[in-house]
């Protein structure tokens, strides 16, 4: 198996969490996939779109249409940004006949990382080992907008020695919501605090997720509350586990 995919890093990971994208590259390489990073990409436009500024979202989102036109697959570390493409791009570019087709095509070939591993590559066991207590927060956009529910759990279930504890009320939003976190700061903080309390209750050493927006929010809140927890993107956890373990199986 030899495959080439384009990485859609997302602006958040590109600038704040480059090691997440790097972990993805390493894991995909390990699975026989070569990764390219088209530099034309910037951001999916979701921050502006969700704030109601659709014209601004359109000009920014267009960078993705330019960047990924020539690839068979696009893989991203974010359920939320992938969800943006899937759920809103056909609508966003509908009025532009030159771009509408590209937008619809992008939807069919763009995958969130765990979705790509499990559903396209058919990989669930990366031969990873991770001897820690871990809890998983499903992002709202990843699970509801995009429908990625089981894939991250299937990958975590195959990690040796990993003790996965269920996060109570896991489906509840952590209060991130992009500009919402700043605009409606007090409500957002109340939601983040509740989420933080549940994370604490699990006793987990590591909080894992598939969206750095949520993880930045929950982790930032917990650090501020004086009970920091190790926050990891699924790709980081898997890579660290692979370095401990024996590599890809099955």
């Amino acid at each position: 198996m030899w495959m080439k995919v384009a990485l859609f890093a997302t602006c958040l990971v590109d600038n704040f969490y480059p090691h997440v994208a790097e972990s993805m590259v390493r894991i995909l390489n390990h699975c026989g996939v070569e990764v390219e990073f088209p530099e034309a990409q910037t951001c999916c436009g979701q921050p502006a779109f969700n704030s109601g500024y659709q014209e601004q979202a359109r000009v920014v989102g267009r960078t993705l249409l330019d960047a990924f036109g020539n690839y068979e697959y696009v893989v991203s570390p974010s359920g939320s940004c992938t969800g943006m493409i899937h759920h809103y791009y056909p609508y966003l570019f509908d009025s532009n006949p030159g771009l509408a087709g590209h937008a619809r095509e992008l939807v069919t070939k763009t995958y969130e990382f765990s979705q790509f591993l499990v559903n396209i590559l058919g990989v669930t066991d990366l031969g990873a080992q991770f001897a820690h207590t871990v809890t998983y927060h499903p992002s709202c956009h990843g699970s509801r907008l995009l429908g990625v529910k089981q894939e991250p759990l299937e990958l975590l279930a195959r990690v040796r020695d990993l003790n996965l504890v269920e996060l109570p009320h896991a489906q509840d939003c952590c209060g991130f919501g992009g500009a919402f976190a700043v605009k409606m700061s007090e409500i957002s903080t109340a939601m983040a605090t509740e989420k933080a309390d549940w994370v604490t209750e699990t006793g987990a050493e590591v909080l894992v997720g598939t969206d750095m927006g949520c993880l930045m929010n929950i982790g930032g809140r917990m650090r501020h509350m004086g009970r920091p927890v190790r926050v990891m993107h699924l790709a980081e956890l898997l890579l660290e586990g692979m370095e401990q373990g024996s590599g890809v199986r099955g």
């Binding site: 600038n15 590259v25 390990h30 699975c31 026989g32 700061s185 983040a192 929010n217 930032g220 650090r223």
Partner: peptide, 24 residues
């Protein structure tokens, strides 16, 4: 109410050009 992460010293796009891929 929340700690905010600083921008990483180097962005992914800057790092990527130097990354060597070892595709199995």
């Amino acid at each position: 109410s929340r700690h905010a992460p600083a921008l990483a010293p180097e962005s992914f796009r800057d790092r990527f050009s130097r990354m060597k891929q070892d595709v199995r």
